Amino acid sequence: MQRVLTILIFLIFLLAVPTVAAQESLVISESDSYVIIAQNSVHEKIILKYVVSQIPDYSLTDSIYVYGSLSNVEVYDSRGRLSKTLTPMEDNSTRIMFYLRPTLVAGDRCTVTVEFDKATENSGNYTYRIDYRWSVVPVSYKVVAKLPQGYTLLGSTENYVLHTEESGDMYLRWFGTWRSRFRTILAFSVGAQSQEEEKAPIPYLPLLAVSVASLIAIVGLWKFRALRKAGEVRPPEKLKALQKKPEVPKEEVKRILRMFTDNEGRIVEELLKKNNLTQTELCGKTDIPKATMSRVLQSLEHKGVVKRVGYGISKKVILTKWAKRWKTE
């Protein structure tokens, strides 16, 4: 029994020596990670920059441990894909072991890229765990995570540097030196617009044209109503109605005119014959002086019988709607 145990220990030692020797022959000068977060999945890229310090008797291999279940794992260098092995670990991480090119010699530099996809966790808000463990401790590391526009960052378990682009995209950055493991948990929420897979483009130009046209129409209508209220603009049909000679019952007119003073009665009588006269025309038809005419018209306006409206530099006098109905009463 003791002999069997000795043989097993010796075999384990033989298997461990190549890996240890290979890893001692490598130095990671930089490890740059880029994390692109979407609503239901995340794409990660880890770029490892190696320096070969010495050539071991065995193949050059390295491993990186990533937390979670991975999919679409790719490992490659500048010449193409590298052979890899994925091993699930007891701590819910996945070991990615890969073999470097056998043509590398001491002093060579090479870059290996590891890419994979992972799923986010949704429990009301979204969370995502970035967790790496390097077999070869990097001299320096950098991790950059991108949250697209419409996402709201709720927090991170590791201190970060935040940069927000004009487009609304957020970039979180972590960096350090000589660290064998990096781990942080991001929490974020997704806006209603970001949950749509496709958004129809907003027709900015048609909306702008409609807005400008509506504004011009509103301003024009407001100006027209202001001029109309001031008497400078009248609808054509109303202007014709004002210029039309009504047939006034004489007996009714006489009864109404008795309610006014002599000057007021003469003015109303002339306006019933021909509405829409200037003050000068009324002075000529009634023989009332201009100074007296202004006082009499002011009295008639106060009684609600006539009103004066602008007409160039002068004013015209017209009967009110109430006074014009006398011809039918």
Score class of each variant (00 low, 15 high):
236 P>L: 15
307 K>D: 07
322 W>V: 12
298 Q>C: 07
240 K>D: 07
213 A>N: 02
269 E>R: 00
238 K>Q: 04
256 I>C: 07
235 P>Q: 14
244 K>M: 15
271 L>D: 00
216 I>Q: 03
239 L>I: 13
238 K>G: 06
212 V>D: 05
213 A>V: 14
241 A>P: 01
283 C>E: 10
222 W>F: 11
247 E>I: 15
260 F>S: 02
255 R>F: 02
203 P>S: 05
258 R>L: 14
240 K>A: 03
230 A>T: 09
253 V>S: 09
265 G>V: 01
250 K>G: 12
206 P>H: 12
275 N>T: 05
294 S>G: 07
319 L>A: 04
229 K>V: 09
212 V>P: 03
243 Q>R: 14
316 K>I: 04
285 K>W: 13
316 K>P: 07
301 E>S: 03
291 A>E: 13
205 L>G: 05
224 F>Y: 13
223 K>A: 15
249 P>M: 07
282 L>W: 00
218 I>W: 10
239 L>N: 09
266 R>A: 13
261 T>C: 02
314 S>D: 08
285 K>N: 14
305 V>H: 00
305 V>M: 00
300 L>C: 02
242 L>Y: 02
205 L>W: 13
233 V>M: 01
227 L>I: 06
291 A>H: 09
299 S>I: 09
304 G>P: 10
294 S>Y: 05
270 E>I: 04
212 V>Q: 08
232 E>P: 00
231 G>A: 07
281 E>D: 10
270 E>K: 01
265 G>F: 00
250 K>S: 14
267 I>F: 03
279 Q>S: 11
248 V>Q: 02
233 V>D: 06
218 I>K: 12
282 L>A: 09
303 K>T: 06
217 A>F: 13
311 Y>P: 03
323 A>M: 10
314 S>K: 06
302 H>S: 09
292 T>C: 10
321 K>T: 13
294 S>C: 04
215 L>W: 11
263 N>I: 05
204 Y>H: 14
263 N>S: 09
299 S>Y: 06
249 P>Q: 10
294 S>P: 02
226 A>C: 08
279 Q>K: 13
287 D>C: 06
259 M>G: 09
218 I>R: 12
214 S>R: 06
304 G>D: 05
248 V>L: 05
211 S>H: 07
309 V>S: 00
267 I>W: 02
259 M>P: 08
273 K>F: 13
284 G>H: 12
301 E>N: 01
207 L>M: 11
311 Y>E: 07
320 T>F: 09
311 Y>H: 08
290 K>H: 08
216 I>D: 11
235 P>S: 14
309 V>Q: 05
296 V>G: 01
272 L>G: 09
279 Q>G: 05
265 G>D: 03
212 V>E: 12
259 M>F: 10
207 L>S: 06
311 Y>T: 05
243 Q>W: 06
284 G>L: 11
255 R>N: 10
302 H>F: 11
264 E>C: 00
314 S>C: 10
240 K>V: 09
317 V>S: 10
265 G>R: 03
223 K>E: 15
244 K>W: 15
260 F>Q: 02
211 S>F: 13
318 I>V: 14
276 N>Y: 05
256 I>R: 02
322 W>E: 07
235 P>K: 15
321 K>Q: 15
319 L>G: 02
245 K>A: 15
273 K>I: 04
252 E>R: 08
